[in-house]
Design a protein around this nucleic acid. Sequence first.
DNA 1: AGCGGATACGTAATATTATAACGTTTTCGA
DNA 2: TCGAAAACGTTATAATATTACGTATCCGCT
Lengths: 157, 157
Amino acid sequence: MKIEPSATRSHDHNACVHDAVATAVDLCEKRGARLTAQRRRVLELVWGSHRAVKAYEILDDLAREQPGARPPTVYRALEFLMAHGLVHRVDSLNAFVGCNHARDRHEAQFFICDGCGLVREIDEPSIGQAVTRGAKKLGFRVDRQTVEMHGRCEACQ
Amino acid sequence: MKIEPSATRSHDHNACVHDAVATAVDLCEKRGARLTAQRRRVLELVWGSHRAVKAYEILDDLAREQPGARPPTVYRALEFLMAHGLVHRVDSLNAFVGCNHARDRHEAQFFICDGCGLVREIDEPSIGQAVTRGAKKLGFRVDRQTVEMHGRCEACQ
DNA sequence: AGCGGATACGTAATATTATAACGTTTTCGA
DNA sequence: TCGAAAACGTTATAATATTACGTATCCGCT
Ligand SMILES: [Zn+2]
Ligand SMILES: [Zn+2]
Ligand SMILES: [Zn+2]
Ligand SMILES: [Zn+2]
């Protein structure tokens, strides 16, 4: 198992991946959820970078080491990982990104650099609050939010 | 030209559509943009309801009255309409919705009812401000935002 | 250990969403 | 009225995602 390097990072990314997997193992253990080898491998592949990764990119990677892999293989794994908050879907990119604070359930908000592809998940409570205010005005109940900001990261400006 | 009724409205929807088209005609006039018959028809079809409409639904409708219609016919019209802020894409639904305050360029924020499909576009400045604050913390420059809240409208709760 | 239901996976097919490529027609100002 | 730009027609294909159904594996229970 080798994790490829990425142009968009300057840190020890293997440590990122290792941490993410350890957290996932832990969390699934606690919840009695089955983090199978395949699901775990898909999690690693999603964490291959801090970019959002396309399902078919994951499929290509997976198929290289496991020729039987098919779309449902990947989508099923992603479904599981999303259900457990280990991965998020980025709707504006049709792509998936690893969650870097998966311990608690949370509303995900993303900054996405259109230059280098970097995705940063944040938790800015005032965004949630502003949304709640807006919802109240309309009598809406909010169950789930998609908040994705596109632009340029510091390095790419 | 007949606009179909929708389960999710209690108002004179033909008036909505009429207004939207009048605004569009006006705006395109001002900008020297060509709101052709086809683009106008697609705008009407998007405005067929206050729900988000799929591209292939529009295509089906359009093809009924114009058998030569093909995917590019619709996507090209939508591209034009979006470029002029007359229609927005709802990323979390892969669908399109008419803009109800197209006069000015604006950041669109949506509340989407998962019960009846109603989409309400709002302009809650505090959301934009909260986002800006979050962006500043990260050194991000925001160019474009996707803010889509899913839940239940007042009637569907 | 052996049974049986639930969960996960393999596999083929197909559905849905979107774009590429290229030629023709229309528009509109010079 | 000419010519370039824009719009449109048409075919094909790319990209994303799901359905359906059969098989294998896991796991609690006896
Ligand atoms: Zn997260
Ligand atoms: Zn960047
Ligand atoms: Zn709008
Ligand atoms: Zn509703």
